[in-house]
Write a protein that binds this DNA or RNA. Structure first.
Lengths: 352, 352
DNA sequence: GCCCAAGATGGTAGCGCTACCAATTCAGAT
DNA sequence: ATCTGAATTGGTAGCGCTACCATCTTGGGC
């Protein structure tokens, strides 16, 4: 019965077993095998057992390309982040991967390098595969990207921030409030000449800066010369350099709010090197609460941001949407937490 | 509207333009469009222009799933790394992405969490898509994984290490020699009671430890109680904890070789906190040379490892292999570089 | 003028899977 | 008995693309 069959198949087959091989070995139709794989509940236990036995015996693995073509849906979730150097996004990715355990979904991941054009290109590329979901960073897509996302035909989650107008769903926290909270903490601790250091100055950094500014203005402490930023990438050494610039401009600084922890760490080292006591002479706070902040000497006050949780939640939202559940609230604010540590201990803020 | 057409096509088409749409608009055969996309040289300039005009007009994007199915080859490179928390692999990924600019290749990336079983599962999963290449970390695959890789039917690059028996190609450096070099440097600086701190203790950590041990034994300084390790993940705080353990065991320590920079940073902070001068009382060296090592106070001696370059080179090797070039030497050793800094400055090693 | 190689182009048959129906069975309702 | 609907299973026609040939030029060597 299969002479003709063999003659026909020999031409281009990859040599690997196919669904049809499994089906004939198990004595069922191909579609039943497909169902046993995608939705086991819909196949009787009896057949299911035989089918899985055949799969094991043949070492069958489903061909995801054929599956994606036939169903116009790839078991892939596209993830776009602006950077990998940045520890923060590595943890988001970890959260995403963790949320994906025991799922057949794959992550396809792209690095936009903080470029909106690159983001648009990647969204286009990802959409061409008909992904099951898309996760993008931030809320500042170009109009063209936004239009692409709106007709993506799959769940879309914007992560890291919350805002009023989600493409589909959103999970993050308010960088503006984060900036406010850490600045207010420094004011409460008695600091007045509180500088702001920022690198990269992507939209999220700007919103943190706005938070800083709003609190400083309310306290009548704002002074533009207290703000030192660069569009260059953030790094520990950049923290040191920004500190030098800031200290030269405003030597009466009594505290620094850093746009992120890398910078804060750079400031700490620079202060050590310059013999400036932290927090005795200068109080110091970071943003994100990387693991090292709590063990630094002195330990450094920071805003703990729910990076892992954001990834986890984003995947949960994608999966829920895939099974038809619409979230009651499409925007999830995971908040943040101020971690007060030695670097802003108020006992030392008197001597200014 | 054209009823017949709609009746036939409306059923399952995705609604997006296909190759056939482009072909009919350009007045050519579908295969010619396919060729214009994959290998423009083989299509006359005249047709090429018309085809690309049609593509632009229709907003056509190639369906990678259909392409992969038909050609039994996906434009995807699978990348397996053991961790994302670890900065080191983030930089390798950066190098990979950077090497991929202007290529239609995509990265599909998987996290093995330092588990050989997970690695095997992921290799199997990746291979099911017929990737164009595979990049895996390390050289300690299970026999089953190795067998899968050997008949992968695509270029395979093992990264991070070099060894005698590549599956296909290899790019990395010798962790054993790295461990030797940094330890020898400490010996040369006059240290004798040189401890080793290690976390995670994956195979690469073990090889660094072996390097340490071989040099220490040659100098007749080896003492098992100088070695403090844990299988728990590496972190800055873990560095502090290992330091406490080590210092309690061997209070006459005059130097520490850390398995990586995170640990070294933790040790530095712990020393600050304990009032132990670095390098006055204890010399300190890390491994990998993360950016912050050079700006820490004191700056920390480390082994600079070519992480970005490894990713870059791995992609270059995959691409070369895809176009049929076999490298003259399948194993590329990118080496490493000892960065001597304040934390091991010999001026301070007398007072032991 | 003829032949053949090389280059350009196209027709068609799959690649391996799933959507869409249809067919079958069986329990429970009428 | 007959009908109805749910549950289970299968046949078949694509999904959109590329491999494999076939065909049709063109140009140069003899």
């Amino acid at each position: 019965m299969d002479t003709a069959d063999v003659k026909n198949r020999a031409r281009r087959s990859s040599g690997r077993p196919t669904l049809a091989d499994v089906a004939s070995r198990a004595g069922v139709g191909t579609i039943t095998v497909s169902r046993a794989l995608r939705d086991p509940e819909r196949v009787s236990v009896d057949l299911r057992t035989r089918i899985f036995a055949a799969i094991d015996a043949l070492g069958y693995v489903l061909n995801p390309n054929a599956s994606a073509l036939a169903s116009a849906r790839a078991d892939v979730i596209g993830v776009l982040v602006p950077s990998l150097t940045n520890n923060v996004f590595a943890e988001v990715l970890r959260g995403i991967h963790d949320g994906l355990r025991d799922s057949r979904l794959q992550i396809q991941f792209g690095n936009t390098h903080y470029s909106e054009e690159e983001e648009e290109r990647l969204v286009r590329m990802f959409l061409s595969q008909h992904p099951s979901g898309l996760i993008v960073s931030g809320i500042d897509q170009t109009p063209a990207t936004r239009a692409l996302l709106e007709k993506a035909g799959c769940p879309v989650v914007q992560i890291m921030e919350v805002g009023p107008d989600p493409v589909d769903m959103m999970v993050g926290f308010s960088h503006f409030e984060g900036g406010r909270t850490v600045t207010q903490h420094l004011l409460d601790a008695g600091c007045r000449r509180i500088g702001f250091l920022g690198a990269r100055m992507d939209p999220r950094s700007h919103r943190r800066l706005s938070g800083y500014r709003s609190v400083m203005e309310a306290a009548d402490c704002f002074d533009l010369s207290l703000v030192t930023t660069t569009t260059l990438p953030s790094s520990v050494s950049m923290g040191g350099e920004l500190f030098k610039t800031a200290f030269a401009k405003t030597p009466d600084l009594d505290a620094l709010v850093c746009n992120n922890d890398d910078l804060a760490m750079g400031v700490l080292f620079a202060c050590h090197r310059a013999g400036l006591d932290v927090p005795g002479r200068i109080s110091l706070a970071g943003f994100n609460d990387l693991e090292m902040m709590s063990v630094a000497f002195p330990s450094i006050t920071s805003i703990r941001t729910p990076r892992f949780e954001i990834g986890h939640q984003a995947i949960a939202m994608v999966q829920a949407a895939m099974s038809g559940e619409r979230p009651s609230e499409p925007v999830v604010d995971l908040g943040f937490e101020l971690k007060v540590r030695e670097s802003t201990s108020r006992a030392n803020t008197q001597n200014i």
